[in-house]
């Protein structure tokens, strides 16, 4: 019932969005090449679906996203677990992290293209950077604030490193990290499109530039819809996974 209700909410919300779009389209007198109607955008979408272009681009984007995001999360969590246990070392690393963190990953783009060339790697690196710092910092702070009783219990039962790390510390902090992993997914998806707008010849971000160069506003809008939809789907998939994992964690509140 609750699920049905939320599906109803989603449909109404999306119809509302389409309504606003159509309303603006009818109200303004931009040419169709500048501001297409929903119908024209869906026409372009159908065209890209039928000739398969869309799936090639989605495939390219998803590959980069998966590689960049997953590797970033894994490395950030592992590093965060270690640094969280070494507060004295982290004191010297934290200021540098705080300096690097607010820099938009896109600022590195010229270097990334110069160093790695054009292809999959620039977008992967951009996604990697965008997810890395939030996950790293939240892992470190979660490990720092771990309930001391877990360490006492581990000592009491003679559990030593590295077992403490994966048997006790990681599961203990996981619910806190899960939230930042989830948030980083959204950030990473935003930067995927940005990363693909330069340095690639495929992907949903490239399609934005390609549509602009060909003056195909309808394709551009169709692409934007697809980007939004995939972002929404990824988010809800992760939300479901997060719920399942937390349930298995015994934290079903």
């Amino acid at each position: 019932m609750k699920k049905l209700l939320s599906i109803k909410n989603i449909i109404i919300s999306l119809l509302l969005l389409l309504g606003v779009w159509q309303f603006i389209y009818t109200l303004t007198d931009f040419s169709d090449a500048l501001f297409p109607s929903p119908l024209q955008a869906f026409g372009a979408l159908a065209e890209m679906v039928s000739n398969g272009i869309l799936f090639t681009h989605i495939g390219a984007s998803m590959y980069r996203f998966a590689v960049g995001y997953v590797s970033s999360v894994i490395i950030a969590v592992l590093l965060g677990l270690v640094l969280g246990r070494l507060p004295k070392v982290f004191q010297y690393i934290n200021p540098a992290v705080q300096l690097l963190r607010p820099i938009s990953p896109m600022a590195w783009m010229p270097f990334i293209v110069l160093w790695f060339g054009i292809g999959n790697i620039p977008a992967i690196v951009i996604i990697f950077i965008s997810a890395f710092f939030p996950v790293l910092l939240s892992t470190v702070s979660a490990v720092n604030s771990i309930d001391p009783i877990y360490m006492k219990v581990s000592k009491s039962f003679g559990i030593k490193q590295p077992q403490i790390m994966w048997k006790v510390i990681f599961p203990a902090v996981f619910p806190q990290i899960a939230n930042s992993i989830h948030l980083a997914l959204g950030t990473a998806w935003v930067f995927l499109v940005a990363g693909e707008m330069t340095g690639t010849q495929s992907g949903l971000g490239y399609l934005v530039i390609d549509a602009r160069n060909n003056l195909r506003a309808d394709i551009l809008f169709a692409d934007i819809i697809v980007i939004g939809l995939i972002g929404l789907i990824l988010d809800s998939l992760l939300k479901t996974a997060e719920k399942q994992i937390l349930k298995a964690w015994g934290g079903a509140d």
Binding site: K152, V153, P171, A172, W249, G250, G251
Partner: peptide
């Protein structure tokens, strides 16, 4: 030797 704590010290994910 083993210690039993006031707040149990159980691992909630197990």
């Amino acid at each position: 030797n083993v210690t039993i704590f006031q707040n149990y010290g159980l691992l909630p994910w197990r």
